[in-house]
Computed example of a mutant assay.
Amino acid sequence: MGVFALTEPAYAGEQPGNTQGSNTEQSGGGDGNGIYATARITYSGSVAKGGGKGNVTSADVNWTPPPCWYAPFLGAKDFKKLMSKNIEDQMNAPGMGGHAGAALSELQRHYEDEYGWTDTPGYKDYNVDKDGEGMFWAAVENPDEPDPLERGSCDELPFWVDNGEAPPPRYEEAISPEILAALAYQHMQLPDTKASLAPEGTTKVNLPTWAWLDRAVFDEVQATAALNVPGFNIQATTTAKPVALKLEPGTEDADTYPASGECAINADDSIGEPYAKGKADQTPPCGLRYLRSSGNGSYKLRATITWEINWTGTGGAGGDLPDGTFGNEQAVVVQEIQSVNR
């Protein structure tokens, strides 16, 4: 079946709240054309600002958020009004070139006089006799998906779903708690990671540098995505829990403690151990040791936290999502001991 592109698209409502760990929530407003304002995905909790992607990166390179999905779009009368005014424009939309004529006639028949195809039943007068009893669903492109072919892979014509009913099984990409969980994951905003160091900022060659993060850094982070329309209300919440800190010295001329560079979280939800006077000759439980001077520059130490992420959703749904990672770089100057003893 040919691609159908609405000139007034089914918007994803990419307008999440702003601030980390907050309970703010924003949703897209109506646009005066009969589109349900509530038919947009809303985000709340710790989510990225301005509708952009969050700063969490999946540890599984094979996992990606959905590039598109099907979601409630318009009631019967509003859909008829849109199609009646813009039917020719729809056929000239991207992906429909060369389908004018017979295809236009078939599309009109599909929604006007029950003309259908295999697994795609037609409709009588746009289902206006069922207005208020359901909605037409349409494809939504994920604006954060960089591949236009992937974004356009949901290419089915708009279809009807009765209130309280699930979309037909053939529409595997129909919006669901699991898809909402993936979108919440994509927009989740994690706190910045800057490890405390001793010595701080400037250290010496072969001197153990202690690294730690206080328990206050490791509060759980939650983000929620929801979709609420008449007869169809679902949501999903992702929860990220920090489980480890990885240190990357920024040079091969360094040792890490432990050798893997991965410092596990302690029982009190902290990581590592703060340096205290008298521990200069001890091996830090979490830290590093530079073996060569950084010269006139500095090394870029990267501290990355691994977050264990799961989700819960409407109807008792839930499960695990790939671990997420997020880290920051901080400059470390390494000096030769002799240079400071002259």
Rank of each mutant, 00 (worst) to 15 (best):
A216M: 04
A216K: 06
V217G: 02
V217F: 10
V217Y: 03
V217D: 08
F218I: 04
F218L: 07
F218T: 00
F218C: 00
F218E: 00
F218R: 04
F218P: 00
F218A: 01
F218K: 00
F218D: 00
D219P: 01
D219K: 12
D219E: 14
D219F: 09
D219L: 10
D219Y: 11
D219N: 14
E220Y: 04
E220D: 14
E220S: 15
E220A: 12
E220N: 14
V221Q: 09
V221H: 09
V221T: 13
V221W: 10
V221Y: 07
Q222V: 08
Q222D: 14
Q222N: 11
Q222F: 01
Q222T: 15
A223I: 10
A223L: 09
A223V: 02
A223W: 01
A223S: 13
A223Q: 03
T224N: 07
T224D: 06
T224A: 04
T224V: 12
T224Q: 11
A225V: 13
A225C: 10
A225E: 13
A225Y: 04
A225F: 01
A225H: 09
A226R: 08
A226C: 03
A226M: 04
A226W: 01
A226S: 06
L227V: 10
N228E: 14
N228F: 05
N228L: 02
N228D: 13
N228Q: 15
N228G: 03
N228S: 06
V229A: 06
V229Q: 05
V229T: 13
V229H: 03
P230V: 01
P230K: 11
P230W: 03
P230C: 04
P230T: 08
P230S: 12
G231A: 12
G231V: 15
G231T: 15
F232E: 03
F232L: 08
F232Y: 10
F232C: 06
F232Q: 05
F232S: 06
N233R: 07
N233H: 09
I234A: 09
I234Y: 15
I234R: 02
I234G: 07
I234L: 11
Q235T: 09
Q235D: 11
Q235M: 12
A236Y: 08
A236V: 02
A236F: 11
A236S: 08
A236H: 05
T237D: 04
T237K: 02
T238I: 13
T238K: 07
T238M: 05
T238P: 05
T239V: 01
T239H: 01
T239P: 01
A240F: 08
A240K: 12
K241S: 12
K241E: 12
P242W: 07
P242R: 10
P242L: 10
P242Y: 12
P242E: 10
V243E: 02
V243N: 02
V243I: 14
V243S: 09
V243A: 11
V243K: 05
V243W: 02
A244C: 10
A244D: 11
A244P: 05
A244Y: 08
A244E: 09
L245D: 03
L245Y: 12
L245M: 15
L245K: 07
K246L: 15
K246H: 13
K246A: 15
K246P: 08
K246I: 15
K246S: 12
K246W: 14
L247R: 01
L247W: 00
L247P: 00
L247V: 07
E248W: 00
E248D: 15
E248G: 11
P249H: 02
P249A: 12
P249I: 00
P249V: 06
G250K: 03
G250I: 01
G250R: 00
G250N: 09
